[in-house]
Structures are given as C-alpha cells and as structure tokens.
Design a protein around this nucleic acid. Sequence first.
DNA 1: ATGGTGGTATAACCA
Length: 256
Amino acid sequence: MKIASWNVNSLNVRLPHLEQWLATFGPDIVGLQETKLEDSRFPDAALVGAGYRSVFAGQKTYNGVAILSRAPAEDVQVGIPGFEDEQKRVIAATVGGVRIVNLYVVNGQDVGTDKYAYKLRWLEAVHDWIAQELQRHPELVVLGDFNIAPDARDVHDPAVWNDDHILTSTAERDGLRRLCALGLHDAFRLHSDVAGEFSWWDYRQAAFRRNLGLRIDLTLVSDALRARCVAAGIDREPRTWERPSDHAPAWVELGA
DNA sequence: ATGGTGGTATAACCA
C-alpha cells in the first residue's frame, strides 16, 4: 500500500498534474495540502474518474486539505478537536484499517512573529491530539507539509537554515521531536541517511535546477506500522513538469 | 539586506 503527501499549491491549477501523477505513480492514499478551494469547488467528480474518492476541508485562497483514496475513507475528522482555528489545515480519516492524519503545518513566516507563535501553539495542539489518536488507532500515519526540516541533512545550506531560521529553528524542531516521541518515525529516515534529498524548492532563483531545497514534506509511521514500512522516498518528477507545484510528493510503502 | 516567483479576494498577502 503506497501512501503519499503532496502540497499541490492550488488544486485548481494543479489538477492535470495530480491526475497524471495518480495514473503513473498509483498511490492508494494521498494527502493533499494547499488545495486553496472552497468545498463546493472541489473536483471530486474528476477524481472519481481517476479512481479515487475524496474527503476534503477547504477555503478560498489559502490552506485547504484533502485525503484521496481508492478504498472508502471512514471516521473523517476535520480540524484539531478543541482547538479553534479558522484555517483549514487538518483532515483525518481511516482507510483500510490505517488511520491517516493529513497536516498542513503553519509556515510561521519568521522566527519571533505572531505567525511563528501560532505555529508553535498549533504544533502543541497537534501533539496532544495525536497522543489520543494513537491510543484509539495504533496503526497511524501522520503525513503532510510539516514546514519543518528535521535536521541538517534536510537542507541545502545548514549555515543559512540554522537554529534561528524559520523552518529549522530549535523550537520548531523540538515540536517535531516531541510529536515523534509519541511513537512516530520519519519513514524516509528508516530507509536512508543521505543528505540533500528534498521535497520543496523555492520558485525563485532557479532553486530546483540547482537543488536548493528542503525536506519538509514527511510521512511519519507509528510503532505498530514500523515493521510494515518497506520503502519511502520523494518523487521529484512532477516538480520537473511545466508550471509545477513548488513541492514534490513524499511517499511511504507499507507491506502486508 | 534585498529581492527574486507563483498563487489568488488582482491588491495585498501568503508562501
């Protein structure tokens, strides 16, 4: 079973890319972020044509998340229970017995800003909620655009992307570490210790061509799924297509 | 330090 995460940066613009990628990569489950669509405009009929059902939580212009799956999605949860948030950043569902939590983590703008404080608060709320989810659903995958690069291997220039920089700051990385300490494992790192494999490249400065990227799109698997995690990676191909998202899909494969 | 690009309430704002 292949499970993926992709920040599409506008599903309206990227639907043809998504359809092409679904047809070639053939994931069983995909978490999408930054759909930037109200629910009434979600292209669920087109995706049925591609063989996928959709559950989604969107808004105009910003944010928006969805889970696509070949098998039905059950027990759908939108948002973090008990955490008031206008921004559509969280959707969870159970597919084929596996609980999928899809996150569009707050970007945070710059260290010390109000948005940064919101990011840290939001991460703490996610942490407390995931602790409960793990009790109810030991077979859990937390995936998404984390807007945090776990360590120095995951950035092209550790001198710039340091302890004081947004997406790599100590407090952000501590937030991710605390989440993982609940019993979640970065699937990519179960299979590789290479540096320089990224999932996001800025549109500016020809960053993709020069591989000036970060690995901020993650798939985390729970203790109970760890032994079934047979492979993980990042599919750079859609980032090479014309008018791409700035993110590439990150994926994990679970064996039987 | 700035600004570069791309998305969308097409003007700022967000990333």
